[in-house]
Structures are given as structure tokens and as C-alpha cells.
Design a protein around this nucleic acid. Structure first.
Length: 372
DNA sequence: TTCTATGATTTAGA
DNA sequence: TCTAAATCATAGAA
């Protein structure tokens, strides 16, 4: 068996009968690509009918047999890609892989399952924004995925047809076609992995942005501020709500306990720093309490304070209210009242044990949070 | 754009 | 762990 000579070094032509060598035939095949479709078809047909074609075919078969061994094993099946699995899992967890849920709420509702943080009742505006953006990402992801899959299908079909066509000219086994198809699929899944990676990054960015946004300051609702102020001004002598009181205030105001703590921390220091500024506010709340419009106040005893002895001296309005309250039902506190209250008083310095009076007829209640 | 109010965070002390 | 105090960062008004 003789190998076909290389095109660049053609064998010397036979002296008598010029035998068209395989190099020439190959060149003709290569030249087909430069021709128009009709021309190419005609040339192809001519080549197919060429008397040397069977010989060329058998030569190619032999070459293939020899080179085939070295090719085998190159395109081994890759093990399942761990990274791809991770990406898939993440997209599934984020609700991106899942198909869009139809019906109530549309795309927005579909993103509900992927709301980070697990909080469901507050920050609804931010949530809807998050959901909308996640939905957008999902839509882009699915549309791109669909595009890739379609392109993959088309390209695979095209290559398969091409190989089948070529199998008339050169030996192309079905297994070879299969392998080529799997190579194509591999390339496309690499592209898909990039898409998945980008989508994951986008979701991560969105998530972190959303979580950051939750840290942003939001003014409390009017109701929450009212509830907190009511407590603050009715416990001005000792504005340190107990844990239970904080929980109750948090529930009433629709905020968290730590927000209540923050609020009282800020309020105490700011009130102390600039009492004059809070005069009006104090008047409003103490008047409210005096009128008795605040249900909570009935159970939140206020303190008859001197207005200047404690760490949080009352404003004139507070003084007036407390004076009324004191006149109404001032009772001496039983000995050994709230240790916490007293401890606080001593800690803050200068504040003597405080007598707490109540309009609601709870004499002797000394704890700042006697309502608990 | 600037200023003020205010919720959140950090740090230090008890 | 709680609080005071300082500070940061932002919403909202002017």
C-alpha cells in the first residue's frame, strides 16, 4: 500500500500514461470550497464518478485505520463536572433554574421563594424590587439558555449532515459522527456553564445589594415613633424598658427589639443633650397621657420627679403632668422595690430612689415597667 | 445642594 | 450584657 504523496511534494508524473495522483484529487476536493454551490455540486458529482474515487477511498480508509488508534482515547468522556453541578444547585436554590410560575403575582410572585433573609412581612417594597430583578435575571437566563440549546441543535444537525455527506467521499463511521456530536455538545455546555456562572454572579450581586439595602436606615412608622415616645415620656424618670417592655413596644410598633433598644439609647442621649429641643414633643405626649387617650399609659405608671434631680429631668410639661398624677395617687413605694430601677438610679448617679405613682391605681409599683 | 433628624454601628466601661 | 457616648450614613425637608 502506498500513501498518497503530500500535495506540496507531488510525485513525478508518469512518463507514458499520466495517472491522476491522489494529491491532485485532494486538491480538487479542497478547491470545492472556493467554488459556487452549483459549481461545487457539479465538481462533487464529477469526483464521485471519478474512476479513481474507490482507490482514493480505500487509501483514506487505510490512513484512518492507522491514525484512528491515536485519536481514540483523546475524546474520552469527561467526568460529571462538579462545578457545573454546584452552579446548577445554586441556580435551583435561588429559584432561577425553576420555570417561571404563572398566575397570581406573575414573575414577582415567582421570586418569592428566593427572598433572602427569610423575612416576609417588612421591607415589602425592597422585596418586590428584589423579586422583580431576580425575575429579570431568570428571564434572561432562560432565553439565553434556549438560544444556546437551539444553536446547539442546529449546529449538531448541520455537522451530522455534513459528515454523512462526507461519508460518501471518505470513511466516516457512525461512531465518529457520534463522537463529533458529543464534542459539539461539550463545547456548547461549556458556553452554558459560562452563562450559568454569569447568572450566579448576577444573583449574588443582587443578593448582596439587597442585604446591604436592608441595613439602610429607614424612618420608623408614625405608629412606632408614637408608641416609643409614649413610653419614653411616661417613664421619663427611668426610661429603661425591661426586656418584656421592649418586646411589647416592638410588637406594637412593628419593629424589632433591638430597634427599640437602639431607639431608647438614642433618645436618652439626645434628650439629655438637648432637653429644650424636646420640650414641645414632651408637651404633646404628656398632654396626651394626661387626657388619658393612651391606653398603654394606664398601665405605665409615671414618676413624680422633681424635674431636676434625676438623669432625665422632666420638662415643664412633664412636671405639670406628674404633679397632677402625684396629687391624684401618690403613695410611698414599698421598701425594697425594683432593684433594677434602683441600681440604675445609682449607676447613673445623683438619682435617688424614685417613687412611682400611678393614675391607674397601682400604688407601690416602683419598677419602671410595672405594667409587665 | 445643604442641613437636620434619626436609625444604626462602634467603642469603652461597668 | 447593657448602656453611654461618639460617630456614621441616610432620609427628608428647606
Amino acid at each position: 500500500m502506498d500513501f498518497p504523496p503530500r500535495p506540496q511534494r507531488p510525485a513525478p508524473p508518469l512518463p507514458a500514461l499520466r495517472r491522476p495522483d491522489t494529491g491532485e484529487v485532494l486538491q480538487q476536493i479542497m478547491a470545492i470550497t472556493d467554488q459556487s454551490l452549483e459549481e461545487a455540486q457539479a465538481r462533487k458529482h464529477a469526483l464521485n464518478c471519478h474512476r479513481m474515487k474507490p482507490a482514493l477511498f480505500s487509501v483514506l480508509c487505510e490512513i484512518k485505520e492507522k491514525t484512528g488508534l491515536s485519536i481514540h482515547g483523546i475524546q474520552e468522556e469527561c467526568p460529571p463536572n462538579a462545578q457545573l453541578m454546584r452552579l446548577d444547585n445554586m441556580l435551583l436554590a435561588e429559584g432561577v433554574s425553576r420555570p417561571e410560575r404563572r398566575g397570581r403575582g406573575g414573575p414577582v410572585a415567582a421570586a418569592n421563594t428566593a427572598t433572602p433573609g427569610g423575612c416576609s412581612n417588612d421591607n415589602s417594597l425592597e422585596h418586590s424590587d428584589y423579586r422583580a430583578k431576580l425575575s429579570q435575571i431568570r428571564q434572561i437566563y432562560h432565553s439565553e439558555l434556549e438560544k444556546y440549546e437551539q444553536a446547539c441543535r442546529e449546529f449538531t444537525t448541520h455537522v451530522t449532515n455534513l459528515l454523512r455527506e462526507q461519508s460518501r467521499m471518505r470513511p466516516v463511521s457512525p461512531k465518529e459522527i457520534e463522537r463529533m456530536v458529543s464534542v459539539i455538545h461539550g463545547k456548547f455546555s461549556a458556553i452554558q456553564m459560562q452563562l450559568k456562572q454569569s447568572t450566579c454572579e448576577a444573583v449574588m450581586t443582587l443578593r448582596s445589594r439587597f442585604l446591604d439595602a436592608r441595613r439602610k436606615r429607614r424612618n420608623f412608622s408614625k405608629r412606632a415613633t408614637e408608641v416609643l415616645n409614649e413610653y419614653f415620656y411616661s417613664h421619663l424618670n427611668n426610661p429603661y424598658p425591661s426586656e418584656e417592655a421592649k418586646e411589647r413596644l416592638a410588637r406594637k410598633g412593628g419593629i424589632t427589639v433591638s430597634q427599640v433598644s437602639n431607639w431608647f439609647g438614642n433618645k436618652r442621649i439626645r434628650y439629655k443633650k438637648n432637653m429644650g429641643k424636646f420640650q414641645e414633643e414632651a408637651t404633646i405626649y404628656t398632654t396626651k397621657m394626661a387626657v388619658g387617650g393612651l391606653g398603654s399609659q394606664a398601665s405605665c405608671p409615671s414618676t413624680p420627679s422633681s424635674g431636676s434631680s434625676g438623669p432625665f429631668p422632666l420638662t415643664s410639661a412633664g412636671d405639670a403632668l406628674v404633679t397632677l398624677q402625684t396629687l391624684a395617687s401618690l403613695r410611698p413605694a414599698p421598701a425594697g422595690g425594683s432593684l433594677r430601677s434602683q441600681a440604675r438610679g445609682s449607676r447613673l448617679g445623683a438619682a435617688p430612689p424614685v417613687l412611682t405613682a400611678s393614675l391607674s391605681g397601682d400604688p407601690g409599683s416602683i419598677n419602671s415597667d410595672a405594667s409587665n
